[in-house]
Simulated assay, not measured.
Amino acid sequence: MSVFSERVKKLRKAKKQSQIEVGKALGKSRESISKYELGEREPDTNVIALLAKHFNVSSDYMLGITDDSEIEAVDNSKFFGRKLSAFESYLKNDNFIPYLQLAVIMKDS
């Protein structure tokens, strides 16, 4: 049994889902999920991505490249600088949105 097949089965059981439920979420049959778990069928890249997204893990984890199942968050401040990150958090603030909407209305009128 491959690392991929073991991890599909482990993640499915951890999420307490049947093969039917996983197949339905991915647009695949129960038989396809079963064959992935048994190592009888090799997944294509789309299936790997779908499974990783469904189980909220990285495709590297699914393939056994890493044992870390957590997806690392990207720190935007490293890419864009602190000022831009601070501005982004300001725009995401729910208290700011009404003021932004008002500014758009005032601009349009």
Rank of each mutant, 00 (worst) to 15 (best):
I65N: 09
A25Q: 04
Y90I: 09
S32A: 15
Y99K: 12
S59H: 05
A14V: 03
M1S: 11
I33H: 01
E21M: 14
G81P: 08
I33C: 03
S29E: 05
A103V: 08
L26H: 05
S5I: 02
I20G: 10
K53H: 08
S29W: 03
K9A: 10
A73L: 12
D60Y: 08
R7N: 03
S5E: 00
L51M: 09
S85H: 08
Q19V: 02
P43Y: 05
I33T: 01
S2E: 05
K13W: 01
K107Q: 11
M106D: 15
I20L: 15
T66R: 01
Y61H: 00
P43C: 09
K107F: 11
D68S: 06
K28R: 12
N46D: 13
S85T: 05
Q19S: 07
Q101A: 11
I71D: 03
A86K: 13
L100N: 08
D94E: 13
Y61L: 01
S5N: 01
D68G: 02
K78G: 04
H54T: 00
Y36L: 10
R30Y: 06
S89R: 14
R41N: 03
G23I: 01
A49L: 11
I105R: 15
S59N: 05
G27K: 02
L100W: 06
Y99Q: 14
S77Q: 08
L91V: 04
L26P: 09
V74L: 14
F96R: 15
S77A: 12
D75L: 07
Q19D: 03
S109G: 13
N76G: 14
P43F: 04
L11T: 00
K83H: 06
L63F: 03
G23M: 04
M62L: 14
A52S: 05
K16T: 02
K83G: 11
N46Q: 11
V74I: 14
V3H: 05
Y99W: 12
K24V: 07
G39T: 02
S85L: 12
D108W: 06
F96T: 12
T66N: 00
D94R: 15
I105H: 12
L84C: 06
E72Q: 13
I48R: 01
A103G: 08
K53D: 05
S69V: 03
G64K: 07
Y90P: 11
D75C: 04
E21F: 08
